[in-house]
Computed example of a mutant assay.
Amino acid sequence: MDRYAVIGQPIAHSLSPRIHADFAQQTRIALEYEAIEVSQAALEQELSKLHRAGYKGLNVTLPHKVSVAAFCETRSERAKLAGAVNTLVRSDTGWNGDNTDGEGLIRDLRDNLDIEVRGRRVLLLGAGGAARGVIGPLLAQSPAELVLSNRNPWKPEALAEHFKPVGALRPCTHLALKGDRFDLIINATSAGHSGEMPRLPGQLLAEGGACYDLSYGSAHAPFHAWAESQNASLIADGIGMLAEQAAVAFELWNGVLPRTDALIAVLHKALWEFGAA
């Protein structure tokens, strides 16, 4: 039976084992999938250990998406562009790195939420590994403008330069957003994991605009409250993106793209029940 895992720290909360169990049942592919906690210091050693143990593929989550790229034998073009890796595919001699986050986000926005990016003004909050994975695919959708905002200007400016070959990206600080209005605001910061929300000026969401959070569960709560204060017409967490990027990773490993619609509903219900409890 083929073995797979998600690695990160912390990892106990991960929904990935549940997601891939659903995919395995759908596709009738026998596999084992587990969550493995890996520290930053032990990352290279653990990758070698899992390869020797015969694992066929790995998902990568916080805080390893950027650093794991250095230990890949090869990287896909989208992983190179992102400078971050969230999926590892086994080769005979090492790991091939890919990044399915951006495709997962676009699939969720377009197919599940009916949110159009083309021609819209889009604000992306945060400039870490999560943001890097979605910038290229967002630019490929031809937004009217894509603004990347962070607490300090250095990371957004560096990323704007990095992504210049594939599209224009306006970098700025959070506070410099004052007076701007956006049709879609995407939160790619990790602030919600600490129960916080980035400090942002006034009204940023245009009338009828939507808010989307890459986080989910309790980490989504601060952004959700902020989005409500912006009178968002739609507020979405990252469960859909999580399922969609996992489906693309599953296809890389097994050659089959599983369905996600019923699964997303189940995961939202499970999170609600957990929170209610």
Rank of each mutant, 00 (worst) to 15 (best):
A131C: 04
S233Y: 10
H193P: 00
I235S: 11
V166L: 14
R170K: 13
R170I: 12
Q245R: 09
S149G: 14
A188E: 00
G195E: 14
A191S: 11
K164V: 03
P156I: 01
H220G: 04
A158W: 02
L175E: 13
H220S: 14
W253V: 03
L204T: 15
Y212S: 05
R151A: 01
G195Y: 12
L200Q: 03
W226G: 05
A160D: 10
G240M: 03
P198Y: 11
I186R: 09
K178W: 02
R199D: 12
H162M: 07
V256W: 07
L257R: 14
E145P: 01
M241Q: 03
W253K: 06
G167T: 14
E161T: 10
H174E: 04
A227E: 04
L214M: 15
A206N: 06
A158N: 00
A131F: 02
W253I: 02
H193Y: 11
L214Q: 01
A176F: 04
K178C: 04
A160R: 04
I135M: 06
L159I: 05
F163D: 02
Y216R: 07
L169D: 03
G192K: 02
A246L: 02
L204Y: 03
G209L: 05
G167N: 11
S190T: 15
L205R: 09
A219D: 03
A219C: 14
I235D: 02
G240W: 13
L177W: 06
L177H: 05
L257V: 02
P171V: 07
A247D: 01
Y216H: 06
P198R: 15
E207A: 13
P222Y: 07
D237I: 11
K164A: 14
V166D: 01
A243E: 07
